[in-house]
Design a protein around this nucleic acid. Structure first.
Length: 560
RNA sequence: UGGGGAAUUGUGUAACGGUAGCACCUGCGACUCUGACUCGCAUUGUAUGGGUUCGAAUCCUAUUUCCCCAGCCA
């Protein structure tokens, strides 16, 4: 399925050309997440692009944890990232690396830069730095420390490393051009002082390299050929080249090429780590793996499959144009993948009681039903039919709208795999709420018999009231309110209080055997996945995605 | 207002001077013991103005709009 639809894209065109012109004779990519959170669907595009490209060219791909900021990074995120990548079905055949593995090497290169007058220790305060940087339209100006002697730079940088200077008191900067039209080239920081504990190197270091310095050199150390990243790094590319070109004598010939592509945006989805973190930390969701979260662990818990996600990434293509993909495409991919993979079963989410007036109290009929309508190899299971059943409350209307092919007074409807029944009357409580629907069963219409062959408008799913299990259905909606009314509000205020609706319903006994993670299609209501919150007495099922529903769509457009 | 990018149907993406295609969405129909699946049909597009050419989404030119950059984050 991988790369099934992606016939070409501008990156592969560029690589083809590189190979043809012998700029490179192999392809080696890397996926460099920062371990400061869990991977989300947005990372997935970068992930699939780097892993998929390596695979297409029979090349290698490295996993590199870009851990140059000790203040944000944690080991359990590293583990989570590796677990997610494996879950997707990828493996880093080029090896596992950490930017922190290169601290020593990077330090040596930094010293070499100082020796060649390409870097200096600056003692401007952060505020002064900003001021000296200039603006988008005005050039910056040189720091008074810019031309201090090499020996002094060497001594100061060493002292920085030895912890002799306070955080923020000095930094190492590349000496490029304070008047450069590209702000990234105005003497960018290479090292800052941070007395923080690093998840891998502990307190060994108190100076840490910046992304712009560490990343290109890490690529070079690992002999990466194509460094595929997102568009916001496009104007860092000159810097990327600068660091590499000025380190060539310290490298063994490797010269990676950075190519940028547009990142994934999805409708009704926030992908900023900051917001996801806020949701977790404020307890608005149950954790990084909450089924509402666009994280891979969240999508996985909800029931999305790796195949569906990878197919989605293939379908959205790769380009440099900013875009926003309709979430419906992801849902389509999930449905398409699950369609031929999971068994069907019946569960009523919003139950209403139906009683049959012409059915004896103790009479029970039993049916053998297919687990999948198009795949006999999925086997069968049995269901029991008795005097009382539950149907979906929305499948009954006392005064039906037009084209309502469901239950209403005087009309016949088929109960899936059982009988054709007719609604005779309803019982209401003192407030006028329907508490029971009275039906008659057409005894000649038993499923499988000749009498069952006649056509009736609708077929409903149901469960036997005396032979079913209670369960909790979690219906998942958009995690934030994204309508015009909420557009300008703070993220927290935009959290959708109805993002997860819990319903108590009844399911057929067949589903008692489901294990956490098992997926089913609940007939007519959608695909569901058993959640880890399940208990022995109350199984919990997340709705992965609903079925396509042309009836409710038609209803909506009629009402407009 | 500096620099770097991008504009093809509702959405996403192809077409690399020669029939604007594909997928999703949407609509209509067939089928159906899931209003699902499946199948068939259909609608809608080259940001704008000039130019080159037999021929332009593609080349030139002038505009317009949108995105990114002023962390000691990545």
């Amino acid at each position: 399925m991988e790369n099934r639809l992606m016939n070409s894209n501008f990156i592969w065109d560029a690589i083809d050309k590189d190979l043809q012109e012998h700029v490179y004779d192999r392809v080696h990519t890397r996926f460099p997440p920062e371990p400061n959170g869990y991977l989300h669907i947005g990372h997935c595009k970068a992930l699939c692009t780097n892993f998929g490209t390596a695979k297409k060219y029979n090349g290698l791909v490295n996993l590199r944890l870009d851990d140059t900021n000790p203040e944000k990074e944690e080991t359990h995120f590293v583990e989570g990232i590796m677990d997610d990548i494996h879950w997707l079905g990828f493996d880093w055949n080029g090896g596992l690396y950490y930017a922190s593995d290169y601290y020593e090497k990077l330090y040596d290169i930094a010293v070499d830069f100082i020796n060649r007058g390409l870097a200096y220790v600056d003692e401007l305060t952060p505020e002064q730095m900003t001021e000296y940087r200039g603006t988008l339209t005005e050039p910056g100006k040189n720091s008074p420390y810019r031309d201090r002697p090499i020996e002094e730079n060497l001594r100061l940088f060493k002292e920085m490393k030895e912890g002799k200077h306070a955080e923020g008191s000095m930094i190492l900067r590349a000496k490029i051009d304070m008047a450069h039209p590209n702000i990234n080239m105005r003497d960018p920081a290479m090292y800052r002082i941070l007395f923080a504990e690093h998840h891998r190197t502990g307190t060994k270091w108190c100076i840490y390299p910046m992304y712009d310095f560490a990343h290109p050199l890490s690529d070079a150390f690992e002999h990466i050929t194509h460094s595929l990243c997102s568009l916001e790094f496009e104007d860092h590319r000159p810097l990327y080249e600068w660091f590499i070109n000025n380190s060539l004598h310290m490298l063994d010939g490797a010269h990676p090429r950075q190519i940028e592509f547009a990142r994934l945006n999805l409708t009704n989805t926030v992908m900023s780590k900051r917001y996801l973190r806020t949701l977790v930390e404020n307890g608005l969701v149950m954790g990084w793996d909450d089924p509402r979260m666009p994280t891979l662990v969240g999508l996985r818990r909800r029931g999305y499959t790796p195949e569906a996600i990878k197919d989605f990434i293939d379908r959205i293509g790769l380009s440099k144009a900013d875009s926003e993909v309709d979430y419906g495409l992801l849902e389509f991919c999930v449905r398409e993948d699950l369609e031929d993979k999971v068994s069907r079963a019946m569960a009523v989410i919003d139950p209403i009681l139906v009683e049959f007036s012409n059915w004896d109290e103790d009479k029970i009929d039993e049916f053998t039903v297919n687990n999948h309508p198009n795949h006999p190899e999925f086997g069968t299971h049995s269901i029991k039919f008795g005097k009382r059943i539950y149907i979906e409350a929305s499948d009954f209307m006392e005064e039906p709208v037009k084209k309502f092919h469901r239950m209403s007074p005087g009309k016949e409807v088929r109960l899936k795999d059982a009988y054709i029944v007719k609604c005779e009357s309803v019982e209401k409580d003192s407030d006028g709420n329907i508490i029971k629907i009275i039906c008659t069963v057409d005894l000649n219409s038993r499923s499988g018999s000749e009498g069952s062959n006649r056509k009736v408008k609708g077929t409903l799913h149901w469960v036997n009231a005396d032979d079913c299990s209670p369960f909790e259905a979690r219906l998942i909606n958009s995690i934030l309110l994204d309508d015009d009314e909420n557009a300008g509000k703070d993220f927290i205020e935009r959290f959708n209080p109805d993002s997860m609706i819990k319903k108590h319903g009844y399911m057929e006994k067949y589903l008692d055997d489901a294990k956490v993670g098992d997926k089913y299609q609940f007939l007519r209501t959608g695909y569901f996945c058993k959640d880890k919150d399940s208990t022995d007495s109350l199984p919990v099922f997340n709705r992965i995605v609903g079925l396509r529903d042309s009836f409710s769509k038609a209803l909506k457009s009629n009402n407009k």
